[in-house]
Amino acid sequence: NSASGPLPDGWEQAMTQDGEIYYINHKNKTTSWLDPRLDPRFAMNQR
C-alpha cells in the first residue's frame, strides 16, 4: 500500500482480474483508481 492507516469508513479495496487495485466507495456506490487516503478532494470533504 502506498498509504498508511485504514481506509475511510465505507471504502473497500478490491482487485481486477488483471491484478490492478481499485477502491469501492459503498456510500456513494462509486469506484476509484485513486486511494481515498491520498486523494486531496476526499480529504477536504472529510473536514
Rank of each mutant, 00 (worst) to 15 (best):
E20G: 03
R37L: 03
S32Y: 02
A14E: 08
R41H: 15
D9A: 08
Y22K: 01
M15K: 13
Y22I: 00
R41Q: 15
D18N: 13
F42D: 11
K29H: 12
N45F: 09
L7T: 06
M15E: 10
W11K: 00
M44R: 09
F42M: 11
D18L: 08
T31M: 01
S4N: 09
F42K: 07
T30W: 15
G10R: 05
L7Q: 06
D9R: 06
M44H: 08
L34N: 08
T30Y: 07
L7A: 03
R37Y: 02
W33N: 05
L38G: 15
M15H: 11
R37T: 05
A43G: 11
D9M: 07
R47N: 12
A14L: 07
D9W: 05
Q13W: 05
P36D: 00
K27E: 11
E12R: 06
A43I: 08
A3Y: 14
W11S: 01
R47K: 05
K27I: 05
Q46E: 14
D35R: 09
N25V: 00
I24E: 03
E12C: 08
P40W: 15
K29Q: 14
P6Y: 06
W11T: 02
L7G: 05
Q17I: 11
R47S: 09
E12P: 00
M44N: 13
P36T: 00
Q17S: 14
L38I: 13
N25T: 01
D18Q: 11
W33C: 02
I24C: 03
A43T: 13
E20P: 00
I21T: 13
D18P: 03
Q46C: 04
Y22V: 01
A14K: 10
D9T: 09
Q17W: 05
L38H: 12
T31I: 01
T30S: 06
Q13G: 05
M15F: 10
I21C: 08
L7P: 02
P6C: 11
D18E: 13
R47C: 04
K29M: 08
T16S: 10
W33E: 00
M15I: 08
R47A: 09
K29Y: 04
E12G: 06
A43D: 12
Q46A: 08
I24L: 10
S32G: 02
D35H: 06
T30N: 01
S2G: 08
N25P: 00
N28C: 14
N1Q: 00
T30V: 15
L38T: 15
P8W: 04
